[in-house]
Write a protein that binds this DNA or RNA. Structure first.
Lengths: 209, 209
DNA sequence: TTAACAATGTTATTCTTTTCACAATAGATA
DNA sequence: TATCTATTGTGAAAAGAATAACATTGTTAA
């Protein structure tokens, strides 16, 4: 792979991809950068710059061909058949995440989930049987899954992360409010709801003065 | 108010604040920038730079006084008694968010929640009675609440946002996968789980090559 | 008392990301 | 066909964020 594409750009491309799919559903065939940009909440210049990295090029008069650009982005992302993932931590948040992803279009499918609470073991929640947390290594074979989500309490998160890494997982969505230490070949996206809320509250206070 | 502090800095300060409270619970009285930085997953230089904005200054030999710095950050954030918020959308995610915030330390408390599904109306979930979505304006008086969370389907999100804005809300956590159009005096934090996951999957693929 | 040390506060530098600006271009119009 | 218009692709400039560097300072120890 040539150059490293920034996280921000990947996020936006993913967003554009979704919007383009929506447009396709509405049988729209062409779209201008500023139209798509408005939907995405970014500037047209930014969008064009992002589109550069996928190599697709539009027409000055017709704008972008919706289908072609969508295909180009998908091709850039190169995820063939839908990805699979595991989820550890079947609390309120874990179950919601599970429902969120396994409910809608099965782009990504959570194939196994885990919890340390014996009461939850073997219960089937949203098409997913719950296994004991300490059996991850036995149930999921190494290299089988590339993505994991952690929705356990903060105190248990690092241990879970270590196990996932040992399993060969290369990408982690971490909902636990702690910084995870992982090897450099593992990508961690931290989603800290309490922090986000704190931020919103701060700027909300700022705004009404 | 003097200068505008960046979102990133606010996030990190909030994180430091949390870590400092944990340290206080463990009766730690002093901490060095590099120690705290390690826990937070940032560099010491960055931490020191962030701490500058709150005006507190540590000692070259003892480092930071945990209690004092914590207080300084709290003071900088200037949220007096705990903030209140409303939540719209009592689906899986909405309920999880509700449990997440109303369960733990009641820094922020969700005081009212709403859903358009008649079956959910008047049910009490996690200490919160569910009201009809179209009655927000009647139940919450204008200016009473500054923060709102949106966990409704994408198609309904903008309408809900408009109502919240009319209510005088200045900060929104938006979990719906759409860009919200709001006046410039309203802050929106978009939390798009599908997008985050897409990003994690992308980098996971990148990492194992 | 003074020198050595280790950590801070802050300035300067580097790096990254966004915005600006405009030449190049494809189609529409006369 | 030639001209006009609106949009793209992209280099250059600007803005923003992270890192590095270092003078300053309080404490310890000889």
């Amino acid at each position: 792979m040539p150059s490293m594409v920034s996280e921000k750009t990947i996020e936006r491309l993913s967003l554009f991809h979704r919007l383009l799919k929506d447009l396709q559903d509405d049988d729209v065939t062409h779209v201008y950068s500023h139209q798509l940009a408005t939907k995405a909440g970014v500037t047209a210049a930014q969008l064009r710059r992002d589109v550069m990295v996928v190599g697709y090029t539009g027409s000055p008069s017709k704008g972008y061909d919706v289908k072609q650009l969508s295909l180009s982005i998908a091709n850039f992302f190169e995820d063939p058949e839908g990805e699979t993932a595991v989820l550890v931590g079947m609390g309120n948040l874990g179950r919601a995440i599970l429902a969120y992803f396994n409910g809608r279009r099965p782009k990504l499918h959570i194939v196994a989930c885990f919890d340390s609470d014996p009461h939850k073991i073997n219960r089937v929640i949203h098409n997913c049987r719950c296994h004991p947390s300490d059996k991850i290594g036995e149930i999921v074979s190494k290299g089988e899954v590339r993505v994991g989500a952690i929705t356990v309490p903060a105190a248990a998160a690092q241990k879970v992360a270590d196990e996932l890494v040992a399993l060969g997982i290369k990408g982690i969505m971490n909902f636990a409010p702690v910084h995870l230490k992982v090897p450099p070949d593992v990508f961690v996206e931290g989603i800290d709801l309490a922090l986000s809320l704190e931020k919103v509250a701060y700027f909300a206070r700022q705004k009404n003065k």
